[in-house]
Design a protein around this nucleic acid. Structure first.
Lengths: 339, 339
DNA sequence: CTCCAGCACTCTCACCGGCCGAGTGCCAAT
DNA sequence: ATTGGCACTCGGCCGGTGAGAGTGCTGGAG
């Protein structure tokens, strides 16, 4: 009983089940894949695979379907990379380059992933913390209310309201703005706290309180991980014919709405470089136990990514295709982004 | 056969069907509602209501369910306003007032609607065109590239890149910024074009080209209706038990992803002041023919709204409750927003 | 030792017929 | 106008049956 053929059988089972969404039996397996052995032999292999926990049968006399562990083995060792076609690549490139601003870039990336994979796309906005500060703007909005606007060099804009005790004349405000911008120019947002600290110490007495308040708001806004924004696209794909989940859509939709949790999952996954895959129960998020998540970082050509994008679908998904799509979009995205 | 009782019967049918989600027959009707007549009499009334197209039976010998037309009559004439409880109102107020910025306000409003109604919430960002200009900022980002940032008095920030032929020194930029802000201060964005036209004419020759370019970008950005952004919340509610649609979730989810179309529907509905309801096939949007949409404008205390929020659910929805929730959130939202 | 054909067994699913109940429409009576 | 009575019509719910698919096992061949 050759080990190699057993893995061939597993690959055949995964491929067939992904295509037909029906448990696959020994007869069909020998008919559709040139294994060169009889069904009976395949049955023995299947028994071994089941013993190893790689496949399972839904009920006694139905075919086998891969388990999470089976998919894992498939993804790690058996799947062949299937690069995108040239037209597809061109389409990605042009579609992304037509974007008019950051919102548009993110939205388009989501639509690309959703359409290429036929699944749900999750795109995180370029992280505030890892990008540089371009400009800081202070705008009075109402009596005693100040709007603080942060513009990063990835083109992202963040805003916060700030209640200030006193009214500010335009001149003071202009002065403050100039000082802050001078202090912050070109720094990474993570280093900005210390730069501000130096600044406020050097301020004239009567402005120091306000300055520290502004500095606090800015650093707080940037520190607040929960403010990382993500965008979902292609949720309609969840209702497509091929997407029946055992537990129904409910838990999946609920998990997708818990953006904080979702973001935690994604960042946790993307520790390593390149494309990462998390399968079924490997996702600690309840509600995603019937789905697999394929993620990749993006955002800079020099390796360290500033944000994440991913595709989420049923464990029974086309892994090679999904991985190829996610990787391709991530690459072009990194190229298109300013900075 | 009194006309009045017929309407009582219709109201009873709607209320029962909304509660139980099962076709309601004459017997149960007389048991659960004190109509003071026998089932046989009710049957006659029901026959008349069916003749009038207000109710229908899914198949022979099942109870009746209201038609779109029936719901319409119910909403227009029969539904009694059911104000929110005091705790609910307090909850809305505090939850909204805890928001830290505009994104957060919009997100919280969505969550409120989704939770109060148990349906999908759609919240439009405060419209650019109908709000006033607070501040215009010009930021150089790279050689020959200028970032134009528009801040409205509702706190919304819009950004556009602009390629300029020459490099600008800080002083020219500061001067330009000052001039634009002086010209635009307090104007509605729709009137801003003319204000800018006057400004550019009065400019010194060598700056006029740049000034007109900036003016063009700003007005173009504001004219672009497609940039109106909306946020969806509570899509998980679509998968709740009470939400079975005849055609499945697919068309509904697809319709919700067509943000342009959806926005068109909402703006079309909210022509009139106050809360508007669109029922079933009244929605021209394909895919929403099994749903009803309850919308209200929000955003200013003096009547004319700057944006829209709404709740979308099955035609079989709790209209009084939904209307009350939408109205309440819209009101508090208007109060909380700056401006 | 590996592979394979055959066989008995199990389980799901689709189909069928009949029954039950809910609800209706009509009619005659008040 | 209202009501009680009555026959009728369906849809949904068993319970049984038969076909089909797939398995595990066993014994024999290479």
């Amino acid at each position: 009983m050759s080990e190699e053929r057993r893995l061939d059988v597993l690959r055949a089972i995964v491929e067939d089940y992904v295509r037909t969404r029906e448990p696959v039996g020994s007869r069909i397996l020998t008919e559709r894949h040139k294994l060169g052995v009889s069904p009976a032999t395949v049955r023995n292999d299947m028994a071994a695979l089941e013993e190893a926990g790689l496949i399972a049968q839904p009920h006694t006399s139905a075919g086998r379907i891969p388990t999470d562990k089976g998919y894992r083995l498939f993804v790690d060792q058996l799947a062949e990379v299937r690069p995108l076609t040239v037209p597809q690549k061109r389409a990605i490139e042009t579609f992304l380059s037509e974007a008019v601003d950051l919102d548009d870039v993110v939205a388009r990336a989501g639509r690309l992933i959703a359409q290429l994979t036929g699944q749900v796309a999750v795109v995180q906005y370029p992280s505030l913390r890892r990008s540089g500060l371009r400009h800081l703007e202070l705008v009075p909005t109402a009596e005693g209310r100040l709007l603080v606007v942060v513009i990063t060099d990835t083109g992202r804009v963040e805003q916060r309201f700030l209640d200030v005790p006193v009214n500010l004349d335009d001149w003071t405000l202009g002065d403050l703005r100039a000082r802050f911008n001078a202090a912050a120019a070109g720094h990474r947002l993570t280093e900005i706290g210390t730069a501000f600290a130096r600044l406020t110490e050097a301020m004239p007495e009567e402005q120091r309180a306000l300055a520290t308040a502004v500095a606090e708001v800015v650093t707080a806004a940037l520190a607040e991980e929960s403010e990382e924004r993500i965008v979902l696209t292609g949720q309609a794909n969840l209702a497509r014919s091929g997407m029946r989940f055992e537990q129904g859509l409910r838990p999946v939709l609920e998990a997708l709405e818990e953006q904080v949790v979702l973001l935690g999952l994604l960042t946790e996954m993307s520790d390593e470089a390149g494309v990462a895959v998390s399968i079924g129960h490997e996702n600690r998020v309840a509600g995603l136990s019937e789905t697999s998540v394929v993620t990749s970082g993006y955002g800079s050509s020099d390796g360290d990514s500033v944000a994440i994008l991913s595709s989420i679908g049923p464990t029974r998904m086309d892994y090679p295709g999904t991985i190829a799509a996610v990787r391709a979009v991530a690459r072009y995205l990194s190229r298109v982004l300013p900075g």
